[in-house]
Design a protein around this nucleic acid. Structure first.
Lengths: 129, 129
DNA sequence: TTATTTATTGCAACATTGTTGCGTTATTTA
DNA sequence: TAAATAACGCAACAATGTTGCAATAAATAA
């Protein structure tokens, strides 16, 4: 089977995301890496990290793609991070952050099979008021 | 003030979306218009329709952008359509549709100002089972 | 109806974002 | 330390979205 390796780029990108309070876009990551690796490598590392389930991909309603490694508090969870929380998108500073504690309730017809939920709330974040 | 005009492209795109059960991407619209107008015009018309609040823009968690003019049932609403319902994204046929009846409940800290919510549920739609 | 105003369009050119193939590099483990 | 191969850099391409500008066509006034 295909094993995955720890490389400089992967380590750097993972720790960048894990230390950031907000989700980062490809361009933001590239900028912060300051030439450590190629643009294409960033795409490939991000894909790998998503597959390994150590980060997740988010898109704002406008279609901007960002990545976040958010830390949840539910210790009995099998997954390394929580997907089904709310993402807050600030329309002023354009930041996207995870509200790990907020889990929405909803009822959907049983004819639909639910595998994943992605909830994004747009507005003004505490920092921008 | 800037007035908005009814053109062939705008009428065609609006009725395309209003007759479609699923949200449509730019490419899908372009294909269905069959050369009625330029690619750029489609982008501009979509922007206009979004501004006029007669359609809305959706992005799947993967970042694919689609447009829908969904009809709600809440007659006392001031808006021509309902934004805060759930969008269902089928991972098999890739369709995105509006579940107008499903309105999720959630509680968010008061330090956030909420202006809009975008909820997408991914899974298998009734048609694909 | 015809003329006027200007919103809208088409086209070309560009910007951004994401993908693929392939030879080279470097991590892993035997 | 050497062999196997995952990951990389580079170049080239594909897809998606944007902008400027001259030409066109709605809406309104005359």
């Amino acid at each position: 089977m295909k094993t995955t390796r720890n490389t400089a780029a992967k380590t750097a990108i993972a720790s960048l995301l894990s230390e950031s309070k907000v989700a980062l876009s490809h361009v933001e990551i590239q900028h912060q890496l300051n030439g450590l690796c190629d643009r294409v490598t960033i795409y490939r590392v991000l894909d790998r990290l998503v597959n390994e389930d150590s980060i997740h991909k988010i898109a704002t309603p406008e279609g901007t793609v960002k990545y976040a490694s958010c830390h949840h508090t539910h210790t009995h969870d099998h997954h390394p991070h929580q997907h089904n929380h709310v993402h807050f998108h600030c329309e002023k500073c354009q930041s996207v952050s995870c509200l790990d504690a907020v889990v929405p309730q909803f009822e959907i017809p049983s004819s639909y099979v639910v595998k994943e939920t992605n909830f994004t709330v747009t507005g003004i974040c505490p920092n921008c008021q």
